[in-house]
Simulated scan of single mutants.
Amino acid sequence: MATKKSLPRIYPHLIVKGAARAIDFYVETLGAKEVSRFADTKMNGHIVHAELTIGETTFSLSEEARDWKNDAPASLGGSPVILTVQVEDARAVGERMVHAGATVVYPIEDQFYGARQGRLVDPFGHLWIITQQIEDLSNEEIQRRVDAWTPDDSGTTKG
């Protein structure tokens, strides 16, 4: 029996304390679909790998296992990675996340670069940018707006 050859791809793998709760959180707040879940029955159901999708994007997660060097953000003092998810209604998704235990880092607001966007940290320590496109801008227009927004040498915003 031949195996299907797949193309290389990259997707995030989150390490969390409370993997089963994290799966429930991502399903409830981001509309994730659980594709698979594998647990080590010798370790009280420790989730060693679960795969989820949001839209066409795949991500996976597993339970923290410090002896395997799989450390969750809380064990490291925070996360250096930010996951961005594009949604149809950023405010509604942000509200669901907060209701389920996420904390707002930057509130969801209309941004000069054509997005309604904010940053939250989920109950497991992972950072998320929730974004909704509200303007269809060219790269040149975005750059013009970035240039106008960027503070000059005196520290004041141009434009």
Results as ranks from 00 to 15, higher is better:
Lys69His: 06
Ser154Arg: 10
Tyr26Ser: 04
Arg66His: 07
Leu52Asp: 00
Thr131Pro: 00
Gly159Ala: 05
Asn139Met: 12
Glu28Cys: 07
Ala65Val: 01
Ile47Arg: 04
Glu140Gln: 14
Arg119Gly: 02
Val98Arg: 15
Leu61Trp: 01
Asp152Ala: 10
Thr41Ala: 11
Lys17Gly: 06
Met97Ala: 15
Arg21Cys: 02
Ile142Asn: 04
His99Thr: 15
Ile129Leu: 12
Thr150Cys: 13
Thr58Ile: 05
Asp152Cys: 03
Thr150Lys: 06
Ala115Cys: 08
Gln143Leu: 14
Tyr11Thr: 10
Gly45Arg: 05
Val85His: 05
Lys33Met: 10
Lys5His: 01
Asp136Leu: 13
Gly94Phe: 07
Pro8Asp: 01
Asn70Phe: 13
Asp153Gln: 11
Val98Gly: 10
Ala72Phe: 03
Arg91Trp: 06
Gln133Tyr: 12
His126Asp: 01
His46Tyr: 08
Ala100Met: 09
Glu141Val: 15
Val104Thr: 15
Asn44Met: 09
Arg116Lys: 11
Lys33Thr: 15
Ile129Lys: 08
Ala102Val: 07
Asp122Glu: 09
Thr57Cys: 12
Pro151Asn: 01
Leu83Cys: 13
Ala102Met: 08
Gln111Gly: 02
Gln133Thr: 14
Lys33Ser: 13
Glu140Gly: 09
Ile129Ala: 09
His126Lys: 09
Asp71Asn: 02
Asp122Val: 02
Pro73Asp: 08
Gly55Cys: 06
Ile47Cys: 00
Val81Trp: 04
Gly31Arg: 12
Asp122Cys: 13
Asp147Leu: 06
Pro151Tyr: 00
Glu135Lys: 07
Gly155Tyr: 05
Gly18Ser: 06
Glu63Tyr: 09
Ile130Ala: 04
Ser6Met: 09
Asp110Trp: 02
Arg91Glu: 14
Thr53Arg: 13
Ile15Val: 10
Ala20Arg: 15
Ser138Ala: 13
Leu127Ala: 12
His13Glu: 03
Glu34Phe: 05
Pro123Asn: 07
Leu83Gln: 09
Arg66Ala: 13
Lys69Leu: 05
Gln133Ser: 14
Leu30Thr: 08
Thr84Ala: 14
Thr3Leu: 11
Asp122Trp: 08
Ala115Thr: 14
Lys5Met: 04
Pro73Gln: 09
Leu127Phe: 12
Leu61Thr: 04
Ile47His: 01
Ala19Ile: 02
Ala65Lys: 02
Met97Trp: 14
Ile10Leu: 11
Asp67Arg: 10
Gln133Val: 13
Gly125Ile: 02
Glu56Trp: 03
Glu141Cys: 06
Ser62Asp: 01
Arg66Gly: 03
Glu34Trp: 05
Asp71Tyr: 12
Gly18Met: 04
Ala2Asn: 08
Trp128Gly: 10
Asn139Gln: 05
Ala74Trp: 05
Ala92Ser: 15
Glu64Cys: 08
Pro12Glu: 02
Lys42Ser: 14
Tyr11Asn: 05
Leu76Gly: 08
Ser154Thr: 14
Thr58Leu: 11
